[in-house]
Design a binder for these strands. Structure first.
Lengths: 344, 344
DNA sequence: CTTCGATTTCGAACCGCTTCGATTGAAGAG
DNA sequence: CTCTTCAATCGAAGCGGTTCGAAATCGAAG
C-alpha cells in the first residue's frame, strides 16, 4: 500500500541509496554485477522514481507547457500532436492547457506552467497576455507563440499568413465570377480573423466591381452557422452576397446547411469557402472548399524552435516562421474550380 | 532571471521562512499586520510556490490523471470537460493523457500518473490494462473506469449501456421496415463495439426475418467510412444491407457520403444510424440519426466517484453507474421516423 | 515586580531523490 | 611488504517548501 521508494530498492539489493541512483541513471559508474542486481530489485518492487523529487533536485521539470484556444478544434488538436512529436523526441513531455475560449482559464494555465516550472511554453494566445508572457520571460522560461506573432518582435513565433489566406479565398471566389463577397467571422478582435478580412479586401481592391461585406457572429459553432445561413437565405437574392468567406469550417458547414435548407443553392447561388480544411470538409453535404493550414507542422516547428531556445543554441536565427496557405477546392465553390485552381 | 523563492519573500518582508509559509497558507496563525506585509512582498516579487516542493513535502500532488482513447473525438473531449468541472470544484487539476488509439501511449500515461503521484485516475481503457490498473491499486491510487466496466467487479465504473444502444438502433431500423441489417465497426476486441453488436442481434432475434451482418473496418475515420460506403454501393441491391448501424458518427457520415456519391439513396435504399451524436451529425449532408451518450455527465460523475474514493468516504455504494442511450432520429433513417420514435 | 498563559514568531527536521566529495579495497609499482 | 593509484561504493548535503515543537514576546493577574 505504501509507495516504493529508492530506499526500498536499496535495501532489497543490499546497497546504498546512492548506488541505486547511480546504477539506474549512470550505469557506467557502477559495476555490471550491481547494475544487474539493482535493476532486478527495482523491477520486482515496481519502483518508479517520484518525478517531484527528481525535479526538485534537478531544478528542471522535463515539461513543456502549451496552451491552445480550443482542443476540440481539429486544427489545434493537430498542432498539439505535432508539438508532442517534437518534444518526445527530445525526451520532454507536453502539458496541454485547453483554454476553451476562456481568457481566465488561459491565464490559469500560464500560472500552472510557472508553478510546475515548465522549461518552455508554446502559447497560442486567445486574450491579451503580454504581462503574463513578460513575466514568464522574466523567470527565464522561453516562450514561442504559435498561430500568432508578437507585435513587439521580442518573441519568436510560428504563424500562418492569414492575409494571404484571406486573399487566396477571395481571389478564388472572384475568379469564379463572384462579385458581392461577405466575410463571416466571430470577434473582430482576434488577429487571425482581422487579417483574413484584410486579405480579402486586398483581393477585392484589384476589382472595382467587387465588394466585401464583413459580418460578425458571436461564435463559430456550426449551430450559429446554420442559423446565419437561414437568415442569409431570407435576404432577397439581389441583396444577398454570392460568395462567402468564413472563419472556420464548422461555421462554414453550418452556413451551407442553413442556406440549402432554405432552398438557396450552393455553389450556384452562393459559393462558400471555409478555413482549416478539417476532416469533415471533404465529406460535408456539399464538400467544402477550404483554406488549409499545416497545423501539425506548425506545432512541430514551434516545439523545435522552443527546444533550441531552451538549449540556448541557435535560437536567434529561427525567429519568425510563417507558413503559407493552400486552397483546397471542392464543390462548395466548384463553378470554375479547375480554372481557379490553376490561377491560385 | 532567477526564480523567486520563499526565501526572497521572507527577506523582503523581514520575517522568517516559516512565517511566510504560515502567512500564505494558514493566515489565522499569523498576526494581521504580518499577513498583510508578507502578501504584499509576495505580490511585488511575483512569488509562486513551486509545486514540486509542495508535493514532495505534502506527499500529494493535487492532480487527477485521466486517459482517453482519442481526444479529437468530441465524445471524449466532452467527457474530459465534465471531469475537469468536477475536479476543479474540489481544487484538483486533471492531467489528461490522450492515447490516440495507441496502446503503448496509454501505458505510458499510466506510468506518468504513477511518477507524478496522481491522487486518482479516470481511465477510459483502449487496450488490455489489467496489470497496470492492478499496480495502481497496489500503490493506493484509486481508479474509476469511464465508458467501460470491470469484468472482475473490483473497480467502480461509469459506463454506458451499449447493449441497449445497439438494440435501440436496431429496433429503430427494424420498425422503419429494414430487414437486412449490417453492423459496421472497428475491432471486435473493443467491448463497447461488441456490446452494441450484441444489442443489435438481440433486437433482431425478435424478428425471424431480420439478419445482422457484422462488418469490420480497420479504423473509424470518415475516410475509411467513405471508402466503405463506395464499396457497399458496388454490391448488388439484393445483396446489400438496407440498414446500417455504425460504431461512431465519423464513420457513419463517411459511409453516407460514399453511398450517395455512388448513387445509392439514403435513407431510401440504405438507412444509417450513427453513434455519439456529434456536432456534425445534425448538419451532415443527410442529417444523421444517432445514439446519444451523455458524455459530459459521464465524465463529471466519474470524477465525483473518484473524489469520493480518494476522500475515503461513501465510495462503496457508488459502484457502477450505467447511463442509458437516447436515440436522436434524423433524416438518415427518416422513413417512418415519427412512428419509430414513439415506439422506441 | 514577578509569574504564568496565550499568542506570535522562529529554527530545524523532513519529503525522495541526485550528486559531490570522501572512503574503501584491490591491483600494480617500487 | 609498503606505497600509490584507481575504480567502485557510500555518506551526506541540499533542492524549496511545510510543519512541529521550542523560543520569544506580551498582557494580565497575583
Amino acid at each position: 500500500m505504501k509507495r516504493v521508494g529508492i530506499r526500498d530498492v536499496a535495501q532489497r539489493a543490499g546497497v546504498s541509496i546512492s548506488t541505486v541512483s547511480n546504477a539506474l541513471n549512470r550505469p557506467h559508474m557502477v559495476s555490471e554485477r550491481l547494475v544487474e542486481r539493482v535493476r532486478s530489485a527495482a523491477d520486482q518492487l515496481g519502483y518508479v522514481p517520484l518525478q517531484a523529487a527528481q525535479q526538485l533536485r534537478a531544478g528542471r521539470s522535463g515539461l513543456l507547457g502549451m496552451t491552445v484556444i480550443n482542443i476540440a478544434n481539429p486544427f489545434f488538436a493537430d498542432m498539439v500532436a505535432g508539438a508532442e512529436d517534437a518534444a518526445s523526441r527530445a525526451g520532454l513531455r507536453v502539458l496541454v492547457g485547453n483554454s476553451s475560449d476562456d481568457v481566465a482559464k488561459e491565464r490559469d494555465h500560464l500560472e500552472l506552467f510557472e508553478r510546475v516550472q515548465v522549461e518552455g511554453a508554446l502559447v497560442s494566445p486567445f486574450g491579451p497576455l503580454e504581462p503574463w508572457l513578460e513575466r514568464l520571460r522574466g523567470r527565464g522560461i522561453p516562450v514561442v507563440l504559435v498561430d500568432a506573432v508578437d507585435d513587439t518582435g521580442e518573441l519568436p513565433s510560428v504563424s500562418f499568413d492569414d492575409v494571404a489566406g484571406g486573399r487566396l479565398a477571395a481571389e478564388h471566389l472572384i475568379s469564379t465570377g463572384r462579385r458581392r463577397l461577405a466575410f463571416v467571422g466571430a470577434r473582430e478582435e482576434v488577429r487571425q480573423v482581422r487579417e483574413r478580412l484584410q486579405g480579402a479586401r486586398l483581393a477585392a481592391a484589384a476589382h472595382p466591381d467587387v465588394t466585401v461585406e464583413p459580418i460578425w457572429t458571436r461564435r463559430t459553432t456550426s449551430d450559429l452557422g446554420r442559423a446565419f445561413g437561414e437568415q442569409l437565405a431570407a435576404r432577397s437574392p439581389a441583396d444577398r452576397p454570392d460568395g462567402l468567406i468564413t472563419s472556420n469550417d464548422h461555421l462554414a458547414i453550418g452556413v451551407v446547411h442553413g442556406l440549402i435548407s432554405q432552398g438557396v443553392r450552393v455553389p450556384d447561388d452562393v459559393a462558400v469557402v471555409g478555413y482549416d480544411d478539417i476532416e469533415f470538409a471533404a465529406i460535408a453535404g456539399v464538400p467544402l472548399t477550404s483554406v488549409r493550414q499545416p497545423a501539425r507542422e506548425m506545432g512541430r516547428t514551434a516545439a523545435e524552435i522552443l527546444l533550441a531556445r531552451i538549449a540556448g543554441t541557435a535560437g536567434a536565427e529561427l525567429g519568425n516562421v510563417v507558413y503559407q496557405p493552400e486552397l483546397v477546392v471542392r464543390a462548395s465553390t466548384a463553378g470554375h474550380a479547375l480554372r481557379a485552381a490553376t490561377h491560385g
